[in-house]
């Protein structure tokens, strides 16, 4: 480079560095903050840990909640993603956090109700959490391809009884609630079907459409359902599907496990009363809001608010019911 060229480059470098320094200073001052200066909760920023990757359903809901909660509670609410182990890593961090209400977490059924029965998880779902509030319940229907020979759930059962080991089915993960609930249902019906473990609802959907499997139990099915490529035969949860009330549920068919797949907010055990009260009030308002409902609708979830007492009761009951069902299934080690 010529002397003049390198001289200019030097000036440009200096200017760049200077700008950076200014930016850094501005950012640091902007970053300081989140102190509300009052003594009551919350007096500083709150962090909600999401045990899943950003961009997923749970993460999207949590960020929407965080935005609204910031306004209601008057303190900044941050969202931090800590993925791993199907949610168990992030949930573990929530369990270990200090019980002051400034670290909370997004929780869903699998890491709490299912995973502890199969894996060595770093927490005890019965003792280690304060379940603050539930906000969403997601449907998890039993699906078949639209070209399938099964017109109803009864058809499916009949075929499976007549052809042991031939019905091929899958769910989005292994040992999750849909998997175990369906296993329990099949066991009760004395059916022997072939479970093909798959990873993620996309693989299951592709399997349904491509003829690899006959039946799938997943929750992300909006696209192919609208396209008419799949049909709903049953729902695993206790409540019927709002737009398909005639579809039978596992509860109606009296199967051992009719799990509710929920999304909720939780914190470490023994959170102070004022924290619980603050979030009860905030979540009640948030879940009743229009913007929350429209997000829920678009992501195929049903708004289902439960306050702390009810939610805690429900989760513990779910955990018990699942343990019992697993014991009967003989899958518990």
């Amino acid at each position: 480079m010529s002397a003049a060229g390198s001289g200019r480059a030097l000036v440009a470098c200096h200017a760049f560095v200077g700008a950076f320094a200014l930016f850094a200073a501005a950012a640091l001052t902007a970053g300081c903050g989140g102190q509300t200066g009052s003594d009551e909760y919350p007096s500083r920023a709150i962090t909600i840990i999401v045990p899943y990757a950003p961009g997923g359903g749970g993460d999207t809901f949590t960020r929407a909640i965080a935005a609204q909660a910031s306004e209601i509670l008057g303190a900044k609410v941050f969202v931090e993603n800590r993925t791993g182990g199907g949610g168990t890593v992030g949930v573990g961090s929530v369990a270990r956090a200090p019980a002051d209400g400034y670290t909370l977490g997004f929780v869903s059924s699998s890491p709490l109700v299912m995973a502890p029965n199969f894996l060595d998880v770093p927490y005890d779902p019965v003792q280690d959490f304060t379940y603050l509030s539930r906000f969403i319940v997601t449907p998890h229907p039993v699906l078949v391809g639209s070209g399938s020979r099964f017109g109803s759930f009864a058809d499916l059962l009949e075929y499976a009884r007549a052809n042991p080991g031939r019905l091929r089915w899958s769910s989005a993960g292994i040992n999750g609630a849909p998997h175990i609930a369906t296993l329990a249902a099949f066991r009760q019906e004395e059916i022997d079907a072939a479970f093909i473990p798959m990873q993620g609802s996309s693989e299951v959907l592709a399997g349904l459409l491509g003829g690899t499997i006959d039946m799938g139990v997943i929750s992300d099915y909006a696209g192919p359902l609208a396209a008419g490529d799949i049909r709903v035969l049953a729902e695993i949860g206790p409540e019927p599907l709002p737009d398909l009330p005639s579809v039978p549920t596992y509860q109606q068919m009296a199967y051992p496990l009719a799990p509710t797949i929920f999304f909720g907010l939780a914190g470490p055990a023994e959170l102070p009363g004022e924290v619980v009260a603050a979030w009860d009030a905030a979540m009640r308002t948030i879940t009743a809001s229009d913007s929350f409902s429209s997000i829920a609708h678009r992501l195929s979830g049903r708004v289902a608010y439960l306050d702390h007492q009810e939610f805690q009761r429900h989760v513990l009951a779910d955990i018990d019911a699942t343990r019992e069902a697993l014991r009967l299934l003989g899958a518990n080690e």
Binding site: F20, A21, F23, A24, A27, L28, G31, C32, G33, G34, Q35, R44, T47, F78, V79, E80
Partner: peptide
């Protein structure tokens, strides 16, 4: 400082804090 700008401000990723000075 560049990392802070990029990760915290642009990407919203919170890197581990020391907790020494609560505000900063």
């Amino acid at each position: 400082a560049a990392i802070y700008l990029l990760f915290e401000l642009a990407l919203n990723v919170r890197l581990p804090r020391s907790g020494l000075i609560p505000g900063l």
